[in-house]
């Protein structure tokens, strides 16, 4: 693996893994503690419509994904907060419409759609220099929004109604949080693809949840676990010649199961004493 570092695409892949870990570590914690894993899944899948639109218009599909993931985030948020529609229905509808639009747009685009698989399943080795710059910008947006609004997001996540009572604009901040999830989805698409994004938004945060009761520490630990999974998965996929995105997800899955077993063991030992 070390000699592989001489290749630019391997270096890019490592940088992309780090940038993805930051987004999924910070935002994944909110996804997990707010129990909005399936909202995130809906946003991720709906963004495929934007990728199709990108192909159809001949622009960078990632720009289309930004558009669609933001629109679906706001759509799910407004539908579930402002109407009596059940949240899971809003998710199901937008999830499916986004995917269907993507398929139609790609069908309408003349010729073959290159890299389509890398958007669906991710290919960290195909990350370009411009992708990295975009991921970096989105990471900066995500991290600065969270550090500026940390106490508000904490209040909102723990007790939204009380937040409203003490004067936090809870509803607008909830929409903002969904938009930050949408941006994280975009950061993660190149790494694991639309279909597996939900894994990186959930698993590192759920793993870190086993070790701490502090939200900030949970974020730092999630970023760390994300990096371990990205680098470990990349290395395994390189050595064993497996799909990189899926390998990264499986490594994080294994890490989660180990952490779960570890924390159960620790709890049992503590009760035994």
């Amino acid at each position: 693996m070390i000699d592989a570092l001489q290749y630019e695409f391997v270096r890019n892949a490592l940088i992309a893994g780090l940038l993805a870990s930051i987004a999924c570590g910070v935002i994944g914690v909110y996804v997990v503690v707010n129990r909005i894993v399936f909202i995130s899944g809906g946003i991720a899948h709906a963004s495929f419509g934007g990728i199709g639109l990108g192909y159809f218009l001949g622009i960078n599909p990632i720009l289309g994904a930004v558009l669609f993931s933001l629109a679906s985030a706001l759509g799910i948020g407004v539908l579930s907060k402002r109407t009596k529609l059940a949240e899971d229905i809003a998710i199901g509808v937008l999830w499916a419409i986004g995917m269907a639009l993507g398929i139609i747009f790609i069908g309408l685009t003349p010729g073959y759609a290159p890299d389509l698989f890398s958007y669906l399943f991710g290919d960290i080795l195909l990350v370009s220099h411009s992708d990295i710059i975009m991921m970096l910008i989105l990471d900066v947006v995500i991290v600065s929004a969270v550090s500026l609004l940390y106490k508000e997001f904490l209040a909102l996540s723990f007790d939204e109604e009380f937040g409203t009572v003490v004067g936090i604009p809870a509803e607008r901040l909830y929409y903002l949080l969904l938009c930050l999830i949408a941006l994280s989805v975009v950061v993660l698409i190149k790494v694991v693809g639309v279909i597996l994004v939900i894994a990186l938004l959930t698993i590192p945060a759920a793993t870190s949840r086993q070790f701490t009761h502090n939200l900030k520490k949970m974020m730092l630990l999630s970023v760390l676990f994300g990096v371990i999974c990205a680098v470990g998965g990349l290395w395994l996929s390189y050595e064993l010649d497996l799909a990189s995105g899926a390998t990264i997800v499986l490594v994080s899955g294994v890490l989660f199961l180990v952490s779960l077993a570890f924390s159960r063991l620790r709890r049992r030992r503590r009760q035994g004493v």
Binding site: V33, R35, L149, K151, F158, F162, G163, V166
Partner: peptide, 29 residues
Amino acid sequence: PQYSLFDHDFPISVWEVVLMGRSGQAGLF
């Protein structure tokens, strides 16, 4: 509020919960 309405497993300390009462006074950002 009614006791049952929050997630009892939420990763938050007593101190953070109490400070939350001041979040309106402290102001956004």
